[in-house]
Computed example of a mutant assay.
Amino acid sequence: MTHSVKPRARAADKRRRLTIEAARVLHEQGVERTTLADIARAADVPVGNVYYYFKTKDELVLAALSEHSAHLDELTGRLDQLPDPRDRLEGLIRAWVDQRDVAARYGCPTGTLAVELDKRADGTLDTEAGTVIRRLLDWTGHQFRALGLPDPEDLAVTLISAYQGMSLLANALRDPDLMARQGDRLLHWLDSLQSPDPTA
């Protein structure tokens, strides 16, 4: 029994390392420039072993997207512990600003991947990247709805668009301070949104 558990545990550990490193390396290098050998090297897994877990690079891209989704779940799960939806949205903005150095160097992990996948000839994985962004939009819209604000879905689009835009500009200009400045503007914008007065 002990002998069968250890190989399974080692296999799960290798797969996990490959998934984590796929998300990081694909973000830093892009899909087209990344090879399976790059990911194997980063995960400290023999390149021949990669094919045991992932038959193609596309499967590794899907694994990277699942890692982005897991990060999103972790972040929103932490933010959901805050009692006030406005505090949750502020926490989201601050989390983006905290990642400003990474965004300035490589862009938004999911956004850049979605754009790159959309330009591929086969066009099969771009919808998967869009699914992760859709989940963020849905979560954000839920917070605006909980605040009683009109057009919560449109407000969510405004907020996520602002994030994608400031990530893109910070990356293009290699300017992490741009993210910090725009994050402050988003916090002021959020504070300015008032729920309609039901007695008016």
Rank of each mutant, 00 (worst) to 15 (best):
L82T: 03
Q99G: 04
R105L: 12
A146L: 13
D154S: 14
D122R: 09
D73N: 14
R88L: 13
R100C: 00
T76V: 13
L136S: 09
A95S: 05
G111T: 05
T124K: 02
E153V: 07
L72F: 06
P109H: 08
D151A: 02
W96V: 06
V132F: 02
E116T: 07
R135E: 03
V132A: 04
L72C: 09
R145L: 14
R105E: 11
I133E: 14
G77V: 02
T112Y: 10
W96G: 00
L65C: 04
I93V: 14
G123N: 14
L75H: 06
R145F: 11
D84E: 03
G148M: 11
I133P: 08
D73H: 14
L117D: 12
R94A: 01
E90R: 13
E74M: 10
L149N: 03
T124P: 07
L147A: 08
V61M: 03
V132W: 04
V132D: 04
E74K: 05
G107I: 11
R145P: 06
D118E: 12
H142P: 00
G130E: 10
A121W: 14
Y106E: 06
V97D: 05
A70S: 13
I93N: 00
T131N: 11
Q99I: 00
L136C: 03
E153L: 06
L75K: 05
D151G: 11
A63H: 12
L82A: 07
E90M: 01
D154H: 15
A104V: 07
W96F: 10
D101S: 11
F144V: 04
A103N: 00
T131P: 00
A63Q: 06
R88Y: 01
D101W: 07
H68C: 11
F144H: 01
A95H: 03
R78D: 12
F144C: 08
P152F: 06
L60T: 03
V115L: 14
R94H: 11
R94F: 00
A104G: 13
L136A: 13
V102I: 13
P85R: 00
P152E: 05
L155P: 14
L137I: 02
L89D: 01
D151Y: 12
D84V: 01
C108Y: 12
P109F: 04
Y106M: 06
G130M: 05
L113W: 04
H71R: 15
A103I: 15
Q81P: 07
D151T: 15
G77P: 11
W96C: 11
E90H: 09
W139A: 03
H142Q: 15
L65D: 02
L75W: 08
E67A: 15
A64T: 01
A64W: 01
R135C: 01
C108R: 12
D126H: 15
D151S: 10
A156C: 09
I133Y: 03
H68T: 12
L125G: 11
T140C: 11
D58R: 13
W139E: 02
R86H: 13
G91Q: 07
T131L: 15
Q99A: 15
D138N: 14
Y106V: 14
L125M: 04
S66R: 09
D87F: 00
T76I: 11
T127P: 06
L149K: 05
T124Q: 01
L79N: 01
T76K: 09
R94Q: 05
R78V: 13
